[in-house]
Simulated assay, not measured.
Amino acid sequence: MDRIRLTVSGIASIEEARLAIAAGADAVALAPGLAGPADTARARIAAAVPPPVAVILPVAAWTAGAVAAQADLSGAGTVQVEHPIDPEDYPGMRRILRGRRFIQRLPMAEPEGAAHTYGGLAEALLLDAGTDAGRDWAAARRIAAASPLFLAGFADPAAIAAAVAAVRPWGIDAGAALRRSGRLDPDRLAAVAAMLQAAGRAPAA
């Protein structure tokens, strides 16, 4: 692994997207409030993000058709599927959203089974790191060894550092951990981006 990628999530404006990109983010994930199909804000943000930075749209729908309907007009090149939709519907969803990439969020209960199911369907998987300081990272390490895995759900930069050391995932999806009083904090952004770069260069334990 040459580096650990950084997604900055909860992006609600062009200004936030630019701040994340300036700090070295590999991707920006749009805020859930921008996910409605009639909302043009997400398309404006997506249009303002230069390549190669990816734009991710999280979609909290339970069927492939609903996922496709929400994602079609977004302008986002990557769709993050928040619920475990029927695996048999993935090929049809890909046909509708031709050219899009997919990240599948894994359920907290029995994530390894879900990873086995979706690992060959989505380009990457996402697992919420949770808030339990005593979490057993063994399952996350096994998933990360088999598929590109993002870890998410961190409360602060220290929690990100601990998860990176324990799992060495393909990427980190950070939202609340990069904010102070609800606003993206440039110092936290810079510190986490630098930590991930250093961790990616370091040999695995």
Rank of each mutant, 00 (worst) to 15 (best):
A163S: 12
A145G: 05
I4N: 09
D187V: 12
G171L: 11
T7F: 13
G113T: 13
V28N: 04
M108W: 11
A191K: 06
A47T: 08
R98S: 14
A114Q: 03
A12Q: 06
R5T: 08
Q197A: 15
G10V: 00
P148K: 03
S181L: 07
G77L: 09
A68T: 08
P157A: 01
Q70T: 09
A145S: 13
R142W: 05
E16A: 06
A115N: 06
R18D: 07
D128W: 04
A165N: 11
A54Y: 04
V167M: 07
A176R: 15
A138Y: 08
A48W: 00
E82S: 15
M108A: 15
A158Q: 14
A12M: 00
G175I: 03
A122P: 14
A109E: 14
G153R: 10
I14C: 01
V164R: 01
A17Y: 01
W62S: 12
A177Q: 08
I96Q: 12
R141M: 07
D39A: 11
A158H: 11
R98I: 05
V55M: 03
A122Q: 05
D72E: 13
A166R: 10
A162D: 13
V192N: 04
R183C: 03
M108K: 10
G200H: 06
L151E: 01
I96C: 02
I4K: 06
E110P: 00
A176L: 08
R3A: 13
A146P: 02
R44Q: 15
R101P: 02
I96V: 15
A191Q: 10
Q104K: 12
L73P: 03
P84Q: 09
A165L: 09
G119T: 02
Q80G: 05
A43K: 15
A144D: 06
Q104A: 14
D2C: 05
P203C: 05
R100Q: 11
D136Q: 07
E112C: 06
Y118T: 04
L121I: 13
G113W: 08
R168F: 10
L126C: 15
A190N: 06
T40E: 12
A145L: 02
G134D: 14
Y118F: 15
Y118R: 05
P52E: 07
W170P: 07
I96D: 05
S13T: 15
A161S: 13
G77T: 09
L6A: 03
T63F: 04
G33N: 02
A17T: 00
L189D: 06
M93N: 06
P52H: 08
L178Y: 09
P186G: 09
A25Q: 02
L184N: 04
M93L: 14
G171T: 11
Q197G: 12
L73N: 11
F150P: 00
D89N: 09
A176C: 05
I172D: 01
L106R: 02
T40A: 12
I21V: 14
A27C: 08
I14E: 11
L30V: 11
I4E: 10
E110N: 14
D156L: 03
E16L: 00
P91W: 02
P50T: 10
V79Q: 01
S13P: 13
A194W: 02
V8T: 07
L6K: 03
L127M: 13
A43F: 10
S181C: 07
A191F: 04
L184M: 07
A140V: 01
A124V: 04
A61P: 03
G65E: 14
